[in-house]
Structure formats: C-alpha cells, structure tokens
Design a protein around this nucleic acid. Structure first.
Lengths: 241, 241
DNA sequence: CGTAAAATTGACTGACTTCAAATTCGGTGG
DNA sequence: CCACCGAATTTGAAGTCAGTCAATTTTACG
C-alpha cells in the first residue's frame, strides 16, 4: 500500500542507531498498534507503582524519569528526547519503579506491551535492537551514577551538557555546538544531585570562563574539546555505532 | 541422560526469580556451552573497553562493577553475588562500558555470547527472563543513582545495607537479619559516593544507635523495620515476585 | 501590563572531606 | 603457636565544597 502510516517512523530511526533494520522489519514496526496522546508539560506518562499496559514512543517534546526520596527531594534519572522509547523497561517489568513526566508538552504513541514483546520475539532482528536500547539506557544510568557519585559540581554539569549535546545531535535537535535545553536550573540540579543555587553559580562560572554561552534555554558550546575535557566526558558509554 | 551437568543450575535459579521456566527451558540453559574459570580477588572479569566474546555466570564469590573518573576516584556501580549473570549487558553491546572485578576469589562460568543470544531468541520463555534480568539490574542502578544523588550519608548506607540483606537472602547467602558482606569500608565508600572515613563514622553511629551490630565482615540488623525506615528503603525496585 | 516562575546574588552554615596518626586485623612464615 | 607486616579500621583536628536562607531581579506569557 502507498499511504503507509509513518507515525512510528522515529522508533525505526532510533533503533537504527543501534543496528540495521530490514524493510520487512521496518514495516513490522510501523504496523504496531498505537494510540497517540498529547500530554501537557508536567503531565505524567507513567507513575511509580503503576502496572503499565503500554510502552511509548516520544514523538515530540521532552520527558524525564524521576524518583522521590523520603525527605521529599527528587532525583532525575534520565531525560528523554524525540525518538526515545520510554518504558521498554516497563514492557516486561510488572510495575513501574519510577515516574516518567513530561518536561514540555509532548506527543507520545502508546503501544500495547504485548504487541511489543511479540514483535521482539517474532523478529529477533528487532528484538535485539530493542534489548540493545534498554542496555544503552542502563549504561547511561551507570554513567550518571558515576557522575553524581564521584565528580565535583563543575565537572558534573559540564559532563551533562556534553551528553545532551551528542544525544540531541543524534536526535536531529541541534548540533553539539548549540542546542535548546528546556530544563530549569532546578531540574538540572535534580539531575546532578546539586541545588539550583549551586547550578546557577556553576553555569555562570562556565559562562564567564568562556566554555559556554547561554541565551534563554539555548546552550552554545564554544569549545567542544575543552568542555569535554572539563567534563571528563567520553562518549563510549552512549554506544553509538 | 542421567548425569546431567548442573554447573549452570544457579542461572536457572536466578532467572526463576523473575518467572517460571519449563523443564525444556531448564534443559536448554543447562546445555549452554561454557568454560569454568577461577579468578582471584581483585582479578578482572571484564575491563572497560574490552570487546567481550562471553557473558558469565557467577557461581561463587562476589564481584563488583566500577568506573574510574579523571581525578582517579572510583565509583562502584553494582555488587554481584552468587547466581548473578554478569554481562548479559555485554552480550549485545559492542564494548564494555565499565569494568567488572572480583571482590573475593570467584568461580565463573563463561558462555559465548552468540550461544546466549541464540537461546534468548529461540526460546522466548528464556529470552524474556534474561531481558527482565537486565531490566532489574537497570532498576537497581537507578535506585543507586537516587541514593547517591539525594540521600544523606546515614540514609544512604542504611539503604545499601538493606538492599544487600534482601539480595543475599534471595541468593541463599544469609537472611535479612544477618549476613556476610565482604566489602571494605573503602569499597562501601566508593559504592555510596562517600569517603571511607565518613563510612566508618556512619557505621559506628548506626552501631551505637543500636540499628546494626558488626563482627568482622558480618552485619547483623537488629531491627529490620527500623533500619529500612532509616534507609528510606522500599524493595519494589528489586522486582521480586 | 501583571503576575508567577525562574534566575541571580550575598551572607552564612554545615555535612562531608582531608590529612595524618594510632590501633586492630588477617594472613603468613618460621 | 607466635611474631611479623601490610591492609583495614578507627580517631582527631581542621578545611572546604556545596547547601541553606532570604532577598532581588529577570523572564515568560496570558
């Protein structure tokens, strides 16, 4: 047929970061059943404790994963961008162990988890890439753990800015020299285990030192090599081909 | 045949934590090709940057995952115990993004990654459990990230002790009231993003407050509910059935 | 324009680190 | 069995990176 539905095309593009997909595989992905939903900024995609029946593809906008601790503070665990598969994690686990929330207004395609799992095992070609994708997410989580556990504030923030630069570039949302980062300093603080006050001071220091420039929510990295060095950043953990 | 090789039995037991396995599935796991290796304490299982050809099952002993940062400091990312599958992660990824090192002398069964991946996709029953296992590892990593990013030292260490208690209990290595923890305070510090001096002071405080007792490397939890409370510990993220 | 959210700044505080030394533990050879 | 020695633990004193508190300015946007 000609007028094929391309709603899930970003999922194909995302998985193709990890390996090649045959035309038949591509068609199988595009044929997945889905429901399109729009969620406003701050709206929930999944809540901790839910027993999710669907996984979703982030078609536009930004989302983040988070957990709350007893003191009421929040840890941001990951930031997801266009094309990211949210909750392949939860396609197998029984209940969500963390919350996923919209950072901006988002458009997401919700796919029944059974359909996803069936596809994964009926087409190992696709299944391997989906598994791969969850492994890369885990790799990023380990890098964040390292970042928060053993790097000082300056290095930590520089590292995060470098990661966003590359991931947004891969998602076609800017290049590593300049991109939009729709996160408040409060959210950056929760992602790095710092306070917003200290994030503010650190960003200013990086700005004054000439590493970056800021304009609204746009970040310009003036000297990639220098920032990557300051941020102890090595992109191996992102597992790009 | 009668004298079936039970070397990989702990892998069956581990996967059975996540779901049931049929007799045929069990037999398929036990039939995986493997090489048994002993590795002394401090020896490497995988090194960051390696292109691993095998994944392995930890048959006895303890191991840990780690990364180094530019300043030379170390972050411990996970502790693995008997029965744990090390580097299912690396069975699909091209290169190891972190190092796995023996904490004590260990005995590990190395299985070719192709054999593992083939089994996963020829028997979805097993494949789902293996995928599930890597998702649980990722869930634990997110909890650790939360722990290090947003809990104070006391809570953080209490949380870690609770996690070990449950995981070791599940592995048949003690109960939640008392277990052997073969980690130095230096290693505990690297797991929690603290210094060994502060770990020492915090453990002593927990001891003096009556929460725990220590004898050599054995930990006794005097009041589980109290420690879990102090450690903001909720076992959902371990995804036990 | 008006208003709430976000960013910014200053003064002060404190949880955790650093440095350094003393004590205990664990394994090994005699 | 004990003496020995390096590793691990423990302790004290002093320092610092990042947090807290609180006020002001800027930005976003209906």
């Amino acid at each position: 047929m000609n007028g094929q539905d391309l709603t899930l095309e970003p999922m194909v593009r995302k998985l193709e970061l990890w390996g090649e997909i045959s035309p038949a595989g591509r068609a199988a992905i595009l044929a997945l059943p889905y429901t399109l939903r729009e969620i406003p900024a701050h709206g929930y995609v999944v809540r901790e404790g839910d027993r999710p029946t669907h996984s979703c593809l982030l078609r536009s906008g930004y989302a983040f994963r988070q957990k709350l601790v007893a003191s009421g503070e929040r840890q941001i665990l990951a930031v997801q961008v266009r094309g990211d598969l949210i909750d392949l994690q939860n396609s197998l686990l029984r209940h969500a162990d963390h919350t996923v929330q919209a950072l901006t207004r988002i458009e997401a395609a919700f796919m029944p988890r059974d359909a996803i799992v069936d596809l994964a095992f009926s087409r190992p070609e696709i299944g391997k890439l989906m598994w791969f994708d969850t492994l890369v997410e885990a790799s990023i989580a380990r890098e964040w753990l390292t970042n928060v556990g053993r790097r000082d504030a300056y290095t930590r923030i520089a590292h995060l800015l470098c990661e966003f630069a590359l991931r947004l570039e891969k998602a076609g949302l800017g290049d590593r020299g300049r991109y939009e980062l729709p996160m408040t300093q409060d959210q950056l603080a929760d992602a790095t285990g710092l306070t917003s006050v200290h994030v503010n001071r650190t960003l200013r220091a990086m700005d004054e030192a000439g590493f970056i420039s800021r304009d609204k929510r746009a970040v310009t990295i003036n000297d990639w090599a220098a920032l990557a060095d300051a941020g102890d950043f090595n992109d191996e953990y992102l597992h790009f081909r």
